[in-house]
Each structure stands twice: as structure tokens, then as C-alpha cells.
Design a binder for these strands. Sequence first.
DNA 1: TAAGCGATATTGGGATACCAATCTGACGGG
DNA 2: CCCGTCAGATTGGTATCCCAATATCGCTTA
Lengths: 226, 226
Amino acid sequence: MSQMLDIHAGLRDRVLSLDLRPGEKLTERLLERDYGASRTPVRAALLKLESEGLMCRDGRSWVVAPIDLGEITLLAEFRATLEASAVRFACERAAAEDIDAIGEMLDRCRPGVPRDEWHKAGTDFHIEIGRLSGNSFLARAVADVMTRLSRPRWLEVLTEPSREQAWAEHRRILDSIRRNQPDAAAQQAVAHVYDTRDRLLRSLDDNRRGFRARGLALVGSGVRAE
Amino acid sequence: MSQMLDIHAGLRDRVLSLDLRPGEKLTERLLERDYGASRTPVRAALLKLESEGLMCRDGRSWVVAPIDLGEITLLAEFRATLEASAVRFACERAAAEDIDAIGEMLDRCRPGVPRDEWHKAGTDFHIEIGRLSGNSFLARAVADVMTRLSRPRWLEVLTEPSREQAWAEHRRILDSIRRNQPDAAAQQAVAHVYDTRDRLLRSLDDNRRGFRARGLALVGSGVRAE
DNA sequence: TAAGCGATATTGGGATACCAATCTGACGGG
DNA sequence: CCCGTCAGATTGGTATCCCAATATCGCTTA
């Protein structure tokens, strides 16, 4: 079962890194050549990516999932739900050393680090908080949501103050967990999620024209009801 | 793409109805004969079922996902998270006629209806509440959780009082949504989820020996930490 | 020039063929 | 009687082949 996993991982990276552009059409035959494999494992990998929301279909053909601004609003609500709950469970359950490990992660990644490192650290913080909850379904859901948000976050133009703010909010949430203050932690987590959404949508909307010019499919409007 | 979907739907039904027993080993060649199709669509269907948590693998071979009692506890926490949030959003957003439609669903299914109808109605109530939230991710997550809970719920021995109680709790939650009382609705939803978990675990644990005798793979213990 | 049309190439879905890994079970040595 | 072993059967993973549906594109025609 190795080739399918290799292709899946490879394609996943290329989608998440925007090497394959959102909205781009792919054919099984092309990927077959790209990976020097036959269509069978290619198709299996595509099916798996489809179930993760990274690929979708246009009629019969495969398309790299477009970036949907409307989805970002929904994902923020979903994240707020998940993470508020995760930090509450984390207060009950997380071991001090696991909390500290996340703290060290934050310390290692002060503003000024390269963009890709910042991106990964921002993702991992939330995934690790999900793990702290001690509930694998919650953790998995948080990880899935962060995957879906990965590409929009990559496109965000990060100002130095907004990085500072996000970093400070992470630190504050973690401190509330360490001090076993579930209400504060949940409130901060929700506020952080919605702040992040606002920054993200503002940045994407400002640059929308530019993304279109670069051939990135951005669909939806970022406001409710669509 | 039709054969794969047919096989997927067929297998899904057989798994959820316990026609295929949890823990049962399946071979692609057997299913190929069962459905008069080739291995290609069978394999695609199996992959899809794997991503839904209804199939899993033992080494290379396919196994109908066992019923994991430990999972039930985790799922209850996850459900409580999701549904508390769903009813809050429903209070903000749900149209009166959509709420009423769910009320009529409840009315149509008073205690005394056949077991399979009761099972479906109990699932659908929660799925519809998820829809009322107006957030497709929340709705999807609720539906996924209910799918994962479907088989354990089917094995539950339902006493008449416990059916009455569950029905009354559903009605109460819906009333709170209609009256736009988000705090009450959320509190009732959480309590309902945990009540349901307790009844379910108690019933399954009581009958555990019997399930084993019938060849159903029940793994885990229902308590935390495993 | 623009719209309609049809031959052709290409596509994804499915079937079949092949292989290496694994399982099974009968046999033989202890 | 038990256990190791080895040949044959079976399995999942992959490659290849076939087909109907679709897309492409040059040509014709109004």
C-alpha cells in the first residue's frame, strides 16, 4: 500500500503549498506520469484527497479544491466551537509537561522567523491544543479544520503587528490552561479564532484581484448566506 | 461513477444494520462476487468506507470496524461540544417553519413505533438540529458522529421509560430553540447527550457477554484512558 | 465571419492480468 | 502428540486494457 500513500502525501504537499493552484484541473494520466506509477494508486490517492476536501470534481474530472471565502466564515464558527471545548478539556486533563512543551514551541518561534516556519507553528499550536483535550475526535476535527485553512492562511499578507497579536493570544490561551482557568481559556480561544478570521478575510479580500490574476480560483464572498 | 457509489451505499447499509458483523473480515474478491462488479469499484468503495470509520484494516486485509466502547465516551464529549454549539446557532438562525418541521417529525414518532423507525428518528433529530445551525461543517460533523454511533445505538436494549425520557428531552431542546433560549437549549443538549451515553454504555455493558457470543467484536471498556 | 457539425483525441470508470506477500494445511521429524 | 516446515492457494497492490462519455478543434456552411 506504499505507492498510494506516497502519491497521496506528495499530492497533498503540492496542494497545500499551492504548487498545484486552487481550481487547477488534473488528469489521472498526467499524475500517472508525474509519479511514475499506474492509474490505480493515483486514483486511490485522489479519492483520499477528495475525502479530505483538498480535491473535488467538476463533472468527471479532478480539480484542486478552490479556495472558498464563504467557507472561511463557517470554518471559524466551527473552530470556535471545537477549540473552546478543547481548551476546557485541556484544563481538566493536560499534564503540565505537555503544556510546557507547547510553550517552548511558542518561544522557539518569535516574530521574525521565516514565513513558512510561522505558518507551520501557527497550525501546530492549534493542533497541539486539540491533542491536549485528550479527545481524539476533537483533536482530529481541529487538525482537519487547520488543514482546510492552510491554503488561505498561506495567502494572508502578514503584518508585523498582526503576528505579534496572534502570538500574544496563543501565549495567553496557553497560560489560562496552565492556570486551570477554563472559562478564560475558552473565551480567549473563541476571541482568537474570530480575530484570526477577520484578519484573514480582510487580507484576502484586499488582494482578491491579485490572486485572480495569478490564476488562483477564489470563490465565495466571505459573508454569510451562500 | 455509479457502481462504486452503489457498492458503497450497499456496504454501508450492511455495516450499519449489523448484517456484516463488527470485526468480520472481508475480501475484495468476495465482495466482487457479491456485487457482480470488478475489484476496481469495490476497492474504491472500501476506501471511502474506511475514511468514514466503518471499515478498517488488519494488516492488509479489510475488517468491518469493531464497536469500540471507549469510543462511545469520546464521541459523547464530541457530540456535546457540537450540539451545544449547533443549538445556539439554531436559536440565532433557524426559521420557524424548519423548527416546526422537526417538531412534526417528533410527533410522528411517539413511543410504540417499531424499533428501526425509532432508531432512524433518533438519528435524524440530531442531524436536523445540526442543519438548523446553518453551518455545514457543524452539520456534517454531527451527521458523522451519528453514523459512528449508529451501530452501538442499534444494539442498545431500549426500555420504555428510557424511550419516553429521550423523546421528552428532544422535545424540550426543540422548544428552547423555538423560544430562542440558547443557554437553556445548550444545557439541555449537553445533558441529553450525556444521559444517552450513560444509558447506552450501561445497556451495552450489561449485554456484553451476549454480543461476544453472537460474534460481535466489542473492544474497549467504556471508561476513559485507553 | 460566426455558428453548427462531425471526426478524433482524451478522459474517467471499470475489467482483467500479474505479482509478491501472506495465509493455510498437510506432512514429517522429534 | 506437538511443532516446524514447505508447497499450494489466496490475498491485496499494481499494471494494463477496454469502453462509453466527453472534450477538442478544424471544417463546412449560411
